[in-house]
Simulated scan of single mutants.
Amino acid sequence: MKQLIVALQGLPADATVLLEGDDGYAPLGALELLGNGGVLPDEVVLQPDMTPD
Rank of each mutant, 00 (worst) to 15 (best):
M1T: 09
M1P: 02
M1I: 12
K2L: 14
K2V: 04
K2D: 14
Q3F: 02
Q3R: 06
L4E: 02
I5P: 01
V6G: 02
V6M: 10
V6R: 13
A7C: 11
L8N: 07
Q9L: 14
Q9N: 12
Q9I: 06
L11D: 09
L11A: 14
L11T: 08
D14V: 04
D14L: 00
A15F: 07
A15E: 04
A15W: 06
V17T: 15
L18T: 07
L18P: 00
L18M: 13
E20T: 12
D23F: 01
D23Y: 02
G24F: 03
G24D: 07
Y25R: 14
Y25T: 14
A26T: 06
A26S: 15
P27L: 07
P27Q: 12
L28D: 04
A30C: 03
A30H: 08
A30I: 12
A30S: 11
A30Y: 11
L31N: 11
L31I: 04
L31P: 02
E32V: 09
L34E: 09
L34C: 05
L34S: 06
G35D: 13
G35E: 15
G35F: 10
G35K: 08
N36D: 00
G37H: 03
G37K: 03
G37I: 09
G37L: 04
G38R: 01
G38C: 01
V39C: 01
L40E: 14
L40I: 02
P41K: 02
D42G: 13
D42Y: 04
E43K: 02
E43I: 05
V45T: 12
V45W: 02
V45C: 06
Q47W: 06
Q47C: 05
Q47Y: 02
P48F: 00
P48M: 04
P48Y: 00
D49V: 05
D49F: 11
D49A: 15
M50Y: 09
M50S: 08
M50V: 12
M50H: 13
M50L: 12
D53S: 07
D53P: 10
D53F: 03
D53N: 09
